[in-house]
Amino acid sequence: MKRLRSAPLALAAALGAIVVILFAAGAPPLEAMRVIFEGAFGTTDRLGATLMAWTPLVLAAAGLLITFQAGLWNIGVEGQIAMGAIGAAWMARSVEGPSLVVVPLTLIGGAVFGAAWALIPAWLRTRFRVHEIFSGVALSFVAAAIAVYLIIGPWSRTGVASTSGTDIFDPRAWLPTIGSWRASPVGIGAAVAAVAAVLVLLRGSRFGLRIRAVGRNAESAHLLGIPTQRYLVAAFAMCGALAGIAGTVQATGFHHKLVPSISGGYGFLGVLVVLLAGFRALWIAPIALFFAAIQVGSTQLSLRLGIDSSLAGVIQGALVLVVLIVGGFQVYSAARGPVVTGEGEA
């Protein structure tokens, strides 16, 4: 996925795709786009909701950028988010104390659980050559099942065991917010820090250079004396940790409890964001904002235009597909040269 030669063409294609989809769905395109935009940014509350969706998405995408640069398809990120949420929920339920103590502990718990879950596909890949796509998908389902088990079993609500979630956490374990805003400055700060850290790591460090070397050509990297397996494991662990923090944000910042589908699909959506960003760290935040806006704004579609809000997923998927294909056409017709692999610049 080389960087697009001309951004305007890609933008036009993306916009065209959205219009076609809205039209096919029976919505007046301009009106629908206005509804989505207002639904995402119209009031400060909605802006808060959009940023609330943006936070885990950016965290997951930042983590995925590391594994992508290492040449890994860490599809298991969904499970790593879920495990992170479980780790955070465990901390929130078992530690009592002021926010200043509990909140950092939930973040650490989430990061540790996410990283630990990511080490399983890393181990299977480096030790048994099991492709991370399959182990990742399978482990995601297992992680989701563990969450359900905890919710209806050991962590069930007092009196009733239902799949609607655990008891609400003690408010001191919630990610702190300002006023009535749902988005937490701690979460947003974590997301911004994650992007900055990944950018520095991949662009400006020896470690990042080596990860990229492993991703581009593992054999050459090995011949140059880079312990490739260790770098793969490290990439998995770092992505898992960031995904785990995303899970923490979902659990302690959004739901304030553990719910069955805690990952919210932000892992898979994160893959789309990274693909659309062309594997460049700087693009992650704005593209994630755009995706979060579609996600949140679409909920207004069903209220105002009677269109199912699952249209958001269709728009996001179609957008990435169109941009990938347009990009492929551009590379193809411009050079007929370089073979497009999975990796671009950081």
Binding site: M1, L275, S310, L321, G327, G328, Y332, G342
Partner: peptide
Amino acid sequence: FSGIALRLNQIAVGFVLFLLAKQLALF
């Protein structure tokens, strides 16, 4: 087409199509 003619990464395109088809089915 995207894997052969455009030489895009088959896994990337396949994954995007997986999500897109799923969302289309839901919608």
